[in-house]
């Protein structure tokens, strides 16, 4: 019997919350008090991290490659922006509506991704994002077109915390939303549903042969991912009080893919760590060499892909293991 109990425990072990995770989130709050002047940058990181997290759900866990994830980010940004413009400035209501609108578009388009190769999926996702971009451009009377959405009035968070010029509220608000959605995603990837996604990604033929309806699982995760990307877009709109066509631009889809590759695919912290590295690097390099910073980002990317994440990750794990005095951390 004791043997069985330990097997059961071993299954649960992988989902256990680690001390290094607590440390990570505590640090993410503390950093605001150490560098209060960087709050706006941090909030940008949190939003990018959330956006990358949403991409990881479909790419790292569902195996769906996308070059058009900005579609959902942009739709969420416009949804929240339009609400704030038309007198519905409550931030959480804005997030909820943005999530619903993005989820609807995600659900509708997910069916186009069920068949076909990675290349097909890349092109379909890219195509959808391009169409939405042009729609937003064309419908200038609603979206403000190339000039961007003017006149957003975002209310205080929970009616209590107004957005300040320095971005303190913006960061804590974005971080809180990121944390909640991170916990939700963590729950999902460690659940039986999450395991079934890994099975679908790993071997779709066998997944079907053990009774998994691969299509319905992929539709579900794609819809959820779209909703989270929509929330990230809404956060961006609310914290910057600005929505322009840029939210739907191709470079945003490419950036989030970069972020995820930098941080590590199929690992929920990957998107967040990638966002930290990408945004800080961008900020730093843009200060040194405003015109050519992308060169250095490109160089880092090439190095990372060639060296491989596993080596970096194993190094990181062995350090945390040594610090905690026992094996298997993070």
């Amino acid at each position: 019997m004791s043997m069985t109990a330990s097997t059961h425990d071993m299954m649960l072990e992988q989902a256990r919350w680690r001390w290094s995770e607590s440390l990570f989130w505590i640090l993410s709050v503390l950093v605001l008090f150490v560098f209060p002047s960087k709050a706006l940058l941090f909030s940008q990181i949190a939003i990018m991290g959330l956006f990358a997290l949403s991409l990881d759900l479909i790419l790292g866990y569902g195996g769906i490659v996308s070059l058009g994830h900005a579609a959902f980010f942009g739709v969420g940004a416009y949804a929240a922006g339009l609400m704030a413009k038309h007198g519905l400035g409550d931030p959480l209501l804005g997030l909820a509506v943005a999530a619903c609108v993005a989820a609807c578009i995600g659900w509708l388009t997910s069916f186009l991704l069920l068949r076909g190769s990675d290349l097909t999926r890349l092109m379909v996702t890219l195509g959808i994002a391009l169409m939405l971009f042009e729609l937003a451009n064309r419908m200038a009377s609603i979206t403000g077109g190339a000039d961007g959405l003017q006149g957003m009035m975002v209310g205080p968070v929970l009616g209590l915390f107004s957005f300040d010029l320095f971005g303190k509220t913006a960061y804590l608000y974005s971080l809180a939303v990121l944390f909640v959605l991170f916990l939700l995603s963590r729950k999902i990837v460690h659940s039986t549903f999450g395991l079934s996604l890994r099975a679908v990604k790993g071997n779709i033929l066998r997944a079907g042969a053990i009774g998994i309806s691969a299509s319905s699982r992929l539709v579900a995760i794609y819809t959820l991912s779209a909703a989270i990307a929509g929330i990230a877009g809404a956060l961006s709109a609310q914290t910057t009080q600005l929505v322009s066509l840029d939210v739907l631009d191709f470079h945003r889809s490419a950036d989030v893919m970069l972020v995820l590759v930098i941080g590590g695919v199929g690992w929920l912290y990957g998107g967040i760590i990638g966002a930290i590295m990408f945004t800080l690097m961008q900020d730093w390099l843009a200060g040194i060499t405003p015109q050519y910073w992308e060169f250095w980002i490109g160089l880092v990317l090439v190095c990372l892909v060639l060296v491989g994440h596993d080596r970096i990750k194993t190094g990181f794990q062995s350090i945390t293991a040594r610090v905690s005095g026992k094996g298997g951390a993070a």
């Binding site: 299954m11 659940s191 039986t192 999450g194 998994i212």
Partner: peptide
Amino acid sequence: LCLAVSERHQQGRDWWHVAGS
């Protein structure tokens, strides 16, 4: 195998409980 057994019991969509709970 846990996954296959869970699927047989129609629990494959369970997104709340940790796999193997």
